[in-house]
Design a protein around this nucleic acid. Structure first.
Lengths: 182, 182
DNA sequence: GTCTATAACTCGATAGAC
DNA sequence: GTCTATCGAGTTATAGAC
């Protein structure tokens, strides 16, 4: 599953085959079909595991960072780390383009993960709203959550197309500065 | 090429075949190969035509809108219109996921287009900077341009995954309000 | 320019031995 | 659980008649 996740995030759901995976893990195609009979089973399993892992990571930010601003900074940094050398994307971004070619199960897993991330983001923006003395207003918390997720995912895409992770930093700089100003 | 562009924006570069295209345009596969010998030729031609068309559209905004703010609002609306029913993406977003599977020519065409769009955006933010009396500061113009492109492309992705164009409006609302406040 | 026909290959998936 | 072998379908691309 590690190998499969890597392949999806680098080349998309349609961009790798059981044959590619076979050489990557040193097993034959048929052996992989034993564990994941259909490719959609594999794609769904990867997405479920990915979502669980990411949310577990985000939940630790409450302990590791004092303020909502720092937690949001951590969020931006986490998506930056996912870029690696500029070749890897967040899994649901990698899935997005071929969305209608995915199974209903996979799509549902994607939707569930995105809803959880949006809720997480929204809570952080709500925490900031309870302190109206702060300079950097981010407006409605739900809108701010949607905008933030779009920004980091769009920044990942930009960095990927340019094959330059620094593009991610550039696209998110303004937002990060706004957090620090608070 | 209209049919091919539509297919790419709906299903990605790897998500359609000459066979699909064949039924869409009422010609046989071999006839399409006559015009575009290799698929990469077709993908490059589509990207070049798309980039030219979009930039021509953006250039008209100077006449149609008085202020930089209005032109940027037009930009956000243009990317919203590209979404259609939530099924269609900006062409370079559709290309992005499978970026390393594309030919060097296609990648170069994508890079050229993105550079032109970023320059266009940057100029609008620079126009706004010359009026420091305005409330909504967008910071460094180059950063703002990168952030804006990332935002609208990320918003397209979010709307697409959710199969709901309204998500695009939500993710871009804050930015549009900031423009109107100027 | 468009067609039929087909080459050469890869895809996801299965059968059955071990 | 992993293997060899293979099926049927789909893929890009080409040859050659019209």
């Amino acid at each position: 599953m590690d190998a499969a996740e890597q392949q999806v995030r680098q080349k998309g759901a349609d961009g790798f085959s059981y044959s590619d995976l076979s050489t990557a893990v040193g097993l034959r195609k048929a052996s992989i079909h034993y564990h994941f009979p259909a490719k959609s089973d594999l794609l769904t399993a990867i997405m479920a595991r990915y979502g669980k892992r990411v949310m577990q990571e985000l939940e630790t930010y409450g302990d590791r960072f004092d303020t909502a601003e720092q937690q949001l900074e951590g969020f931006v940094a986490f998506y930056r780390a996912a870029l690696q050398q500029g070749s890897s994307l967040c899994l649901c971004v990698a899935y997005a383009v071929n969305a209608d070619g995915l199974s209903a199960d996979t799509r549902q897993e994607i939707a569930r993960f995105r809803a959880e991330v949006l809720t997480w983001l929204q809570h952080r923006f709500e925490m900031m709203q309870t302190r109206p003395d702060l300079p950097g207003g981010f407006g409605n918390a739900t809108d701010a959550a949607a905008a933030t997720l779009a920004l980091v995912e769009g920044a990942q895409l930009s960095a990927r197309i340019a094959a330059d992770p620094a593009i991610y930093d550039q696209a998110t700089r303004r937002f990060r500065e706004q957090l620090r100003r608070n």
